[in-house]
Amino acid sequence: MDTSYSDIAAVPQRPRWLLPFGIFATLFLIASQAAALLMSAPDRDMGHLQKILYVHVPSAWMSMIAPAIVFVASVLYLWKRQAKHDMVAAAAAQVGIVFIGLTLIQGSIWARPTWGIWWTWDPRLTTTAILFLIYAGYLALRAFAEDEDQRARWSAAVGIMGFLNVPIVYMSVRWWRTIHQVQSTPDTMDATYKLGLRLNAFAFLFILIFLIALRYYIARLERARTAVLEERTLAGDKIHV
């Protein structure tokens, strides 16, 4: 610990559960993937390509949960005006866009051998690409906005509006004609695939929670560092960074 900080109490401590939980989430993900790959039979149409299900579908689910967290945190910020809610929203957006990107890439890799194409502008794919753009815009806005309060307010507005696209992405395969199939249900999926999908859904959820918590902790550290530097500047110290 750097004792030269003028106010050590202000430096956030890493939550005790963070590291053990991260290790647990990683091991659980590895075990779930192994179980799913080894236990399930190849699909009668697509053979082993079916295995992409165990990363594509959980990623897609996380691509909806993360925006939901951004939405709730944004509402809380506008209501209570506390910086922590703004920081949670930012963390969830940063992690969320990774999962949206993964969903698009995995889907493309799956589409080539099954549909015969890498990409097509069907409503499901298009709305998902827009979802990616919305959170790219959200993060760009955060990167450029100068004033902290203004940034938090604008981001919250975008975080709330952007979430409206999530139900559209979800329902797109039911509302419009698409090449993407409608959601599978337990009835359309043989028992051999269900356990693997459910295990990996939880594995991805744990990873999502861990990454958001980690990013939130880093944001708090950055904030504390900025506060210390500003304090020193005010005190007339020379800053050595």
Binding site: A41, P42, R44, M46, W115, I117, I179, S184, D190, Y193
Partner: peptide
């Protein structure tokens, strides 16, 4: 271009289907 629309069903092969391998 010809694109194939896959259903939302996932089933293991039955006898008589081409082997997935």
């Amino acid at each position: 271009s010809v694109m194939v629309k896959h259903s939302n069903e996932y089933r293991p092969p039955e006898d008589g289907h081409p082997k997935p391998e």
